[in-house]
Design a protein around this nucleic acid. Structure first.
Lengths: 252, 252
DNA sequence: CTATTCTGCGTGCACCATACGCAGAAGATA
DNA sequence: TATCTTCTGCGTATGGTGCACGCAGAATAG
């Protein structure tokens, strides 16, 4: 099975620059980068819902349908936008760096990337990463675990786990921040309000565990608290990975 | 601060049945349940994109705009649909059941719920759970961790972590299954094809960790392999939680 | 019996993704 | 140089979308 003739989706080939310019026909007046950049500009300014084909085309001064010469559907454009927005992965694991701090850095970089472009989280994921940056992030994540006793598929599962958590976390916090901004409140207030609402809903009825939680005093959301909750989840995952690595190492 | 007068979003109040029928005016001809059920029926049959206000209204034999007497925006309807589709949480932790099997059951129930209604994963989450079922699931998750040495916020973080992973995992597998069905392939083939595509893209260039992974033989996706990867992630998380519980217990 | 309030819903608006096909540009071939 | 082939941008058209607005009439309160 030779890899040379594996078929690739059109927009992926374009994004990787694997497409030779066809001999005939007029020159293209746009580049893929320009189209994607225009989409990002719109999303950055007015949010993902504002990204319509006509709006993006307007941004570039071309007709709406011209975009379909670069992208086979809107979803393609969105995917490429997300890939571009992730940007460069964090620096690879240094020679003296352990897998754990390296993976923690990688996880944080995931969160930062989403927070820098909050609209990313609304781009529906439609499969494993194939864009140039997505693959580079994958490489960086796997590199953090090189040399450990983990098998290949386990390494992959581990970084999928971490990135899933990071995405989930970034989504949650970005949602709260946006809700707060929309209603001219502080994020702390939004958190507080949620606890009050939950308290009202669960005051009566079979919710002992929730009431126990609320009674403990729900200090809802100053910045350190946020940070602490992120660390909590991440540390749980990394502890789990460490447990496995140790047991693997002990078995050899 | 009395909880009694905390303001709640309109559709939430309606869903919890906290709204007394106003004296005046004509009787409503529909119930919230009917509207939500109609939306679910459409999503179930033709996918979430097919859920338009007019389509749902048609399903009920009423005019499009009538729905807005029950729901303040389409996003409200989607949220309520998701809440309803989650259905009953799994059975609470039994008296002889440890926290770990209980939480594992809860995690699996999350996955099952999404797989049973795959469109759920395309409903954008816009905040912490407030629907009746969402809160009940929360209660069940917290209950699994009652009696452990964990603090309240830690318990919450832990179940958020688990449910985030479950959602992420269910999304990934559902995406693959749908892609396979759409192209008349088996899920194994779709996985295999991805590895081939990745191999082609990373054949040249700075991707040593990925090539190492691919060289190890990427047995892509029979059912046990799937199951094993799910267990991998879940066990990592639970190991992490266990580590913390042990250290807390030792400290006392 | 009247005033009030809430109902379902018809109309209208702005906007959306994208199928189709055409005129003309550019290189390939003769 | 002339013709052919292919690819370009894009105008037009289709069949949707969510939802603001306001009206006629139903039901209850006083």
């Amino acid at each position: 099975m030779s890899d040379a003739d594996v078929e690739l989706p059109e927009s992926i080939e374009l994004a990787w620059g694997l497409r030779e310019r066809p001999g005939k026909g007029p020159r293209r007046s746009l580049t893929m980068e320009q189209v994607v950049a225009a989409g990002i500009r719109v999303a950055e300014g007015d949010g993902l819902p504002a990204v319509s084909m006509s709006r993006v085309a307007g941004e570039l001064g071309v007709a709406t349908m011209s975009l379909y010469r670069y992208v086979s559907a809107k979803s393609d454009l969105l995917e490429l936008m997300a890939d571009t927005a992730y940007g460069d992965p964090p620096a690879p694991r240094g020679p003296d760096e352990g897998w754990r701090p390296a993976l923690a850095r990688w996880a944080l970089a995931n969160v930062t990337a989403i927070h820098r472009h909050p609209w990313i989280r609304q781009v529906p994921v439609s499969g494993p990463p194939m864009g140039p940056n997505g693959v580079r992030w994958m490489e960086a994540g796997l590199a953090a675990l090189r040399g450990t006793a983990l098998r290949g598929t386990e390494r992959l599962s581990a970084i999928l786990l971490v990135s899933g958590y990071a995405r989930y976390w970034a989504t949650l916090t970005a949602d709260m921040t946006e809700a707060a901004a929309r209603e001219q409140l502080s994020p702390e207030d939004v958190g507080m309000r949620y606890w009050q609402q939950l308290a009202r809903l669960t005051r009566h009825g079979p919710y002992p565990a929730i009431r126990e939680l609320l009674a403990e005093g729900a200090e809802g959301g100053d910045d350190e608290e946020f940070e602490a909750e992120w660390r909590f989840g991440l540390d749980r995952i990394l502890d789990g990975v460490e447990t496995l690595i140790r047991s693997r190492a002990a078995a050899d």
